[in-house]
Amino acid sequence: MTSIRSGLAILLAGALWLTGCGALSDEGRTDWPAPSPALWHVTGPGGTEGWLFGTVHALPRGLDWRNPALDAALDQSSVLVVEIADLNDGDAASAAFMARARQPGLPPLSERVPPKDRPALREFMDRADMDDAELAGMESWAAGLLLANGARRHEPSQGVDRALLADAASVVGLESFAEQYDRFDRLTHDQQEKLLLGLANDVDGDRSDDHIVAWLTGDLQTLEHETGIGILADPDLRQALLTNRNLAWMDRIESLLTEGRRPFIAVGAAHMLGRDGLPALLEARGFTVARLQ
């Protein structure tokens, strides 16, 4: 049975996983299309420039996602900007998580959702090889993230973020593990229940490879559709876990651009979509944002 300790050993910052595109594909697939993931060039007064790139936090092993346009942008940039700079610091992630995850007096997890939803939750727990006893005292958001990571078929080590970090000489983070988990910890009881059930119904379900192909080919319309049917389809969760984070990042991103740092900003693909996405928010602040691919 999976323990809390081993679950934390592979625990992604929850918002990282939720706002990227999870990889659900069969590892044996080899007929992926040529890579051309969406990439934007940002310019402003006085020669200010940077790049925006939406990432995927877990991919099938061996999938080729880099191409000349992406490599050229990375070569021209001087700093990599990611959600969490110390993404590989498992001790820091675990400490931040455990400091917020527990609350005394909570009922068993399987009893926190309506009876009609309990079979789906029990199946989710079975897939993660965890039970009520192991999750005793865990707030629903925390239990949901542990279960989601336990039920995953693909490891986050195959994510784009980690590959970019491995090659970066200079890295800036937009937030900390503590700030990410604070956003979950502030969710209301009802919002946490929605998150838990949404994860139960969404993680590694019977979905096709369409979302991976859409990301790989820069098909933003399909990505927006995928985002609209998952966890982030709920307006309250979307505001708390996606939109508010974008808004919180904007001052830091603008400063990096205007200081001439030539940032390559690589965050979860969902952060690039729609009127609250980073391209639209930067345009609203007077920058010119042009799609490169």
Rank of each mutant, 00 (worst) to 15 (best):
D182F: 05
G230E: 00
D234N: 11
W141E: 03
G230Q: 03
V172I: 14
Q221L: 08
R183I: 02
V171F: 03
A166H: 09
L241C: 04
S157H: 14
M138W: 01
T243Q: 05
Q180T: 13
L195I: 10
S170R: 14
A148R: 11
R186S: 08
L237H: 05
R245K: 08
L187V: 12
G173C: 13
G159S: 13
A142H: 05
E193L: 11
F177K: 06
P156W: 10
G159M: 13
Q239N: 02
S176H: 13
H225V: 08
R186H: 03
W141L: 09
R152I: 04
D236M: 08
D210F: 04
Y181A: 09
V160A: 07
D182H: 13
H154N: 07
A143I: 07
D209P: 03
H154W: 00
R207F: 13
G137K: 06
T188M: 08
I229P: 00
D236A: 14
A168H: 10
L232I: 04
D219N: 14
G228F: 01
N149V: 13
D185Y: 00
F184A: 05
G144L: 14
L164Q: 07
T222N: 02
F177P: 01
G150H: 11
D190Q: 13
A168T: 08
H211Q: 11
